[in-house]
């Protein structure tokens, strides 16, 4: 399937999802669906660096928060429509990704992960002390009730996140089947051998951190409008970092399908648990599932299914 066919197919599915939610005529579905889709974007973004290149990022929440705080900043400084904010947030967190990559990618394995964790702490401290965006008090972002043509605001946000999810999946899938994707895989497998084969590893890793960071920031951009009140503790919250890692790990990290499955499964499960049990059970569920999968199926759900299904399919040819 060519990438634009894939994009069309994804868009068709997305449209079906949207109209199904409209048909149910309950704003709660949009409200819960937004969170699940947000995790689809986050998990897919994490997987570009973590799954394809093998560099584990513990600082996903920081990139997400950069996106969210870009919105808060512009909400006060220069009100813009959300799609523009998404773009700006993508640029801001993409640049932070590039900078982080440049400073930390000479580190490998656990050291890189620790550095990303440190990045989250540094950025959170910065935001806490930045009065303009609310500091530790947080910031209120008052959203309109209605949007022309679409209806309620939460439907509008849902639609934006749906488009972002489709975009993220299309990007991830395009990378996977390109020269870039092959290059990423050599970095995951053996960096020394990759260099010896002519792969410019540093450049590729920078592309990965930038793309991954930008997508995470984009996922965070509509968040202040969704939640209405943003404070550092929630924007930099542990759930984002944990989910961004757990979802691809549970779904499978080697292809774009894995993070999608992981995010849909875990995201929905968390929403159900929030309503039926309590919101505190969320992370416990994620933790238990992650431990279970790491032991029983280290290659995730995709890894479990692949032997029965993938063998018959011939690998895609690179360009």
């Amino acid at each position: 399937m060519r990438w634009w066919t894939f994009l069309l197919a994804c868009s068709a599915v997305a449209a079906a999802v949207f109209f199904a939610a409209c048909w149910l005529a309950n704003d709660y579905y949009f409200f819960a669906g937004y969170t699940v889709l947000q995790f689809v974007v986050l998990a897919t973004a994490w997987n570009i660096l973590g799954g394809y290149c093998g560099y584990v990022n513990f600082g996903s929440a920081a990139f997400f928060a950069v996106g969210a705080y870009t919105t808060v900043f512009f909400h006060k400084a220069l009100p813009l429509p959300i799609p523009a904010l998404v773009l700006l947030a993508g640029i801001a967190s993409g640049l932070i990704g590039l900078g982080t990559g440049y400073l930390t990618l000479r580190l490998r394995g656990a050291f890189f992960s620790i550095a990303t964790l440190a990045l989250a702490v540094v950025l959170q401290t910065l935001v806490v002390n930045w009065n303009y965006v609310g500091g530790s008090r947080g910031a209120y972002v008052v959203r309109p009730n209605e949007v022309a043509l679409i209806g309620s605001y939460v439907q509008y946000l849902f639609l934006i996140m749906l488009a972002l999810a489709v975009g993220a999946l299309a990007v991830a899938r395009a990378i996977e089947r390109s020269r870039l994707g092959f290059g990423f895989a050599t970095i995951r497998d053996d960096e020394l051998a990759a260099e010896a084969s002519g792969v410019p590893t540093l450049k590729l890793k920078l592309i990965a951190t930038t793309l991954s960071g930008a997508l995470m920031g984009m996922a965070g951009a509509p968040f202040p409008y969704y939640i209405g009140y943003l404070e550092p503790a929630s924007a930099f919250g542990l759930p984002y970092a944990v989910n961004a890692i757990a979802m691809p790990m549970i779904g499978g990290t080697t292809s774009w399908v894995g993070p999608l499955i992981g995010a849909l499964l875990l995201g929905t499960l968390q929403q159900v648990a929030t309503v039926t049990i309590s919101s505190a059970v969320n992370l416990l569920l994620v933790g238990l599932l992650l431990v279970g999968f790491v032991i029983v199926a280290p290659k995730g759900i995709v890894g479990l299914v692949q032997p029965y299904w993938g063998r018959k399919r011939k690998r895609a040819e690179p360009p």
Partner: peptide, 24 residues
């Protein structure tokens, strides 16, 4: 390399494709 360092997640053919794509 002294100890062979193939790309384990790729087929033999794809292992050879990497230098073709990235060096040639």
């Amino acid at each position: 390399f002294q100890l062979p360092r193939p790309f384990p997640s790729m087929t033999v053919g794809d292992n050879l494709r990497i230098p073709l794509l990235y060096a040639v």
